[in-house]
């Protein structure tokens, strides 16, 4: 990514700018390009170093840690002792749901340990992702269609739609916690007595509803941006040809908005896969609403190295999902214009 992006902004002003000043001298031009290239790499260096410090170093450090054992307790002194190298044991433990056994070796993790939650947390994370992204896409599309029309107070609607997105997630979660309390608004409104955060499916729906409420505006705005790229003439031509509203939507809007839509879905999916605040505050991870991120945070308090292994696993899972999106589903985050051209050929 960096190599492709890097040279482009640097070269174009150079080749475009040089003839004006140094047109007559061919040799000077070459030198200029060379020195500008050097100059550019100096300019880029701070960014590259900063990125290396804040992104590359922590990732590598986490991966190194994940191959270390967590500190064990010396039974005589009662003090922790360094764990030493663990090989891939941390990874095996998570995936096979194995925990350390009292006499040495491992046993299947009993309920009540974090190790016993790996696969259920993975399933929960994907369940939340699929359902919330589906809802958010459908509702977001609908909201975007409304916002794309010209009507009185359109800017007001656009601003109002943004409100849920602007509220910090932790605050949103606290609001919904009040709404879903036993004597809260949700139960009062429907005259029900559901224990929203106290049983499995209501708890899951509570998280899904809150997340949909919060992030649909984000989808709506991204899709709206895509909708506004479609020239009005296309619709006019279709109308002249006698296309119905449904045909116009299916044959013009959908294909033309697809690149923007796929990027929006990709962003939301990656975001949803690392969902943390909402379930953490709403349910504390009870009733099978523990996501992978919650599991990582809980594990950090019990042992850094096992937590590093789990976060690496999470990283790989998210990476695979992103890869599938970009490679097979045609979500193009980087070279939008180039790729659409290719797609049309």
């Amino acid at each position: 990514m960096a190599t492709e992006l890097g040279p482009t902004p640097v070269k174009s002003p150079a080749s475009g700018g040089t003839p004006v000043h140094h047109g007559p001298k061919g040799v000077g031009e070459d030198n200029k390009i060379l020195s500008q290239g050097k100059w550019a790499s100096w300019l880029l260096a701070p960014t590259v170093i900063a990125l290396a410090m804040v992104i590359v170093y922590p990732i590598i450090s986490a991966i190194v840690m994940s191959f270390q054992k967590d500190a064990g307790l010396d039974p005589v002194t009662g003090l922790f002792t360094a764990g030493g190298p663990a090989g891939v044991q941390n990874y095996v433990n998570w995936i096979a749901q194995q925990c350390a056994a009292p006499g040495g070796g491992t046993v299947a993790c009993p309920p009540g340990t974090l190790g016993a939650q790996f696969w259920s947390a993975t399933a929960t994370t994907f369940l939340f992702t699929v359902i919330t992204v589906t809802f958010e896409t459908i509702l977001g599309f609908w909201m975007a269609m409304i916002m794309a029309r010209t009507f009185k107070g359109r800017s007001l609607v656009r601003a109002a739609v943004l409100v849920p997105w602007a509220i910090p997630t932790a605050v949103t979660a606290q609001l919904w916690l009040f709404i879903f309390a036993f004597e809260g608004i949700a139960n009062n409104l429907f005259n029900a007595s559901i224990l929203w955060t106290g049983s499995e499916w209501p708890a899951k729906w509570a998280v899904i509803i809150a997340d949909t409420w919060k992030t649909t505006p984000f989808m709506a705005l991204l899709i709206l941006a895509g909708l506004q790229m479609i020239p009005a003439e296309v619709y006019e031509a279709a109308k002249v040809d006698g296309a119905t509203a449904w045909q116009r939507f299916r044959l013009i809007t959908l294909p033309l908005v697809k690149p923007a839509l796929m990027v929006a879905v990709l962003f939301r999916t990656l975001d949803a896969l690392r969902m943390f605040d909402l379930p953490y505050i709403l349910t504390g991870g009870a009733n099978n609403t523990t996501t992978l991120s919650i599991l990582v945070i809980n594990q950090i308090r019990q042992g850094f190295n096992a937590a590093a292994a789990l976060s690496t696993i999470t990283f790989i899972i998210i990476f695979i999902v992103a890869f599938i999106f970009v490679r097979f589903l045609g979500a193009n985050v980087v070279e939008q214009s180039g790729a659409t051209g290719k797609g049309k050929k």
Partner: peptide
């Protein structure tokens, strides 16, 4: 009994 077993594995360290 699950509590007992969970706490045992925690104390077993790794």
């Amino acid at each position: 009994s699950d509590m007992q077993k969970s706490i045992e594995t925690a104390g077993a360290g790794s």
